[in-house]
């Protein structure tokens, strides 16, 4: 790792002040950024640690409205009893990220701000129609995720929370890469008052996306059987040593079936 200057922020305002020094980056749980710095894929001059800001932590569930603070860990999301009652698909998703030690440190805000094309959370945010709250504005998830590792965030903008209305039905299924446990394809489906949404992670060439083929089929009937014979184009899907675009296209349908079955269970 190259040399770096560490700054611990005490509040969001303090973090915004401290990010102005050099080529600084925000540090949340560090489960992606620190490994990237160790391999020198990232080399910020300064780190502004958001991990000790109390106002960014915690989960609030009021009726069907859920608000999750940005530095809430995957472990805390996975084990929140109130959240499990209104949106078990999301607690299940969090329980599948990485391993127990990673879940103790990794955060929801860090995950969505990084927007790894194979991360789990972006698919949930998109399918839940979540609102991403920052220190400057509120953004619909549809407008937040911009492509591979790209979001609408400005340099001095911090995700402070995500908020959504728990849908009547939601499910998530992923086919994990056997080594990294990142999604080789993951599908999050929801059925709420605004209809059906299905978001796919791990498969898109340009990151997380909504599958109109899956959504159209599930709008007719929100059941796994509705996806029989449905195919998703492999154009614009990722191909690598783990899976070809065609293999991932097939996985999208298979994972969508499992996600719907989980949502209806």
């Amino acid at each position: 790792m190259y040399s770096v200057n560490y700054h611990r922020a005490t509040s969001v305002a303090d973090a915004v002040k401290k990010i102005k020094s050099g080529d600084a980056k925000f540090l949340a749980g560090g489960m992606t950024l620190i490994p990237a710095m160790k391999t020198r894929l990232a080399a910020p001059s300064d780190l502004v640690d958001l991990g000790h800001i109390a106002e960014l932590k915690g989960i609030k569930v009021s009726g069907k409205t859920v608000t999750i603070g940005a530095t809430t860990t995957h472990f805390d999301v996975a084990n929140d009893e109130k959240l499990k009652k209104v949106c078990p698909a999301l607690t299940h998703l969090a329980s599948l990220i990485g391993d127990p030690a990673v879940r103790h440190r990794g955060t929801i805000g860090g995950s969505i701000a990084n927007n790894d094309p194979a991360a789990d959370y972006p698919s949930a945010m998109l399918a839940l129609g979540a609102t991403i709250v920052t220190n400057k504005r509120e953004l619909a998830a549809d407008k937040f995720f911009k492509g591979l590792f790209e979001t609408a965030l400005k340099d001095d903008e911090i995700v402070t929370a995500v908020t959504f209305t728990a849908p009547a039905k939601a499910g998530y299924a992923k086919f994990p890469n056997p080594a990294s446990r990142y999604a080789m394809t993951g599908v999050f489906v929801t059925k709420g008052k605004d209809g059906v949404r299905a978001a796919v992670t791990g498969a898109g060439d340009d990151g997380v996306f909504r599958s109109k083929e899956i959504e159209a089929a599930l709008t007719k009937k929100f059941e796994a059987s509705a996806l029989e014979g449905v195919s998703v184009p492999s154009k614009n899907l990722m191909g690598d040593i783990h899976a070809s675009p065609e293999y991932r296209a097939n996985l999208v349908v298979v994972m969508a079936k499992r996600a719907v079955a989980a949502a209806n269970a």
Partner: peptide, 9 residues
């Protein structure tokens, strides 16, 4: 809590 000490400063 269990954490990986190679991934924390």
């Amino acid at each position: 809590k269990a954490v990986k000490s190679c991934t924390m400063l």
